[in-house]
């Protein structure tokens, strides 16, 4: 597909999402969530479309997208691993676990492996603080991380 065709397609998919949600009270976050769900990130070309549909400035939409940690401006790897770095997990050796995970995957936090298999991100609490250290792999929760569970995670993202 040509670049232009791809971009037209993004525009039409984004417009469909916006049309469906713009009647909500305070529709911007729900729209951005849906767009990220659809494309895996919030493509830059959707911002002016959103701005126009909601009758707000491009700068306003840009400001919102960049304020929140969840929105990506480029796609993540095939898997997303979020490892909790907050206090309760720290108290159970979370820092060492995080370092082991980072080493096993060969990437640091906020990075994606070269083969695009996984993106590693920090998260500050998953509400699993009585099952620490904790992580979330593609929305699946994992508690009491240890060497075995790290190995399982690595296997899963590589398969």
């Amino acid at each position: 597909m040509s670049m232009q065709a791809a971009s037209t397609q993004i525009a039409s998919r984004a417009t469909a999402i916006i049309d469906e949600m713009k009647a909500l009270e305070g529709p911007l976050l729900p729209i951005l969530h849906e767009i990220q769900e659809e494309f895996g990130h919030v493509p830059a070309e959707t911002l002016p479309i959103i701005a126009k549909a909601l009758n707000i400035s491009n700068a306003e939409v840009h400001g919102v997208v960049t304020f929140y940690h969840d929105y990506r401006n480029h796609p993540a790897g095939r898997h997303v691993l979020k490892v909790c770095r907050a206090e309760a997990c720290q108290s159970m050796g979370g820092d060492a676990i995080a370092a082991q995970i980072s080493q096993a995957l060969g990437i640091g936090f906020h990075e994606t492996t070269k083969d695009n298999s996984v993106t590693l991100e920090p998260v500050y609490c998953l509400g699993l603080c009585a099952c620490a250290p904790a992580a979330m792999l593609d929305g699946e929760v994992i508690g009491r991380l240890d060497a075995d569970k790290i190995e399982e995670i690595v296997q899963e993202v590589r398969s």
Partner: peptide, 9 residues
């Protein structure tokens, strides 16, 4: 309605 945050403490 249920609304979802976007990762800001």
């Amino acid at each position: 309605e249920i609304r979802v945050g976007a990762g800001a403490y």
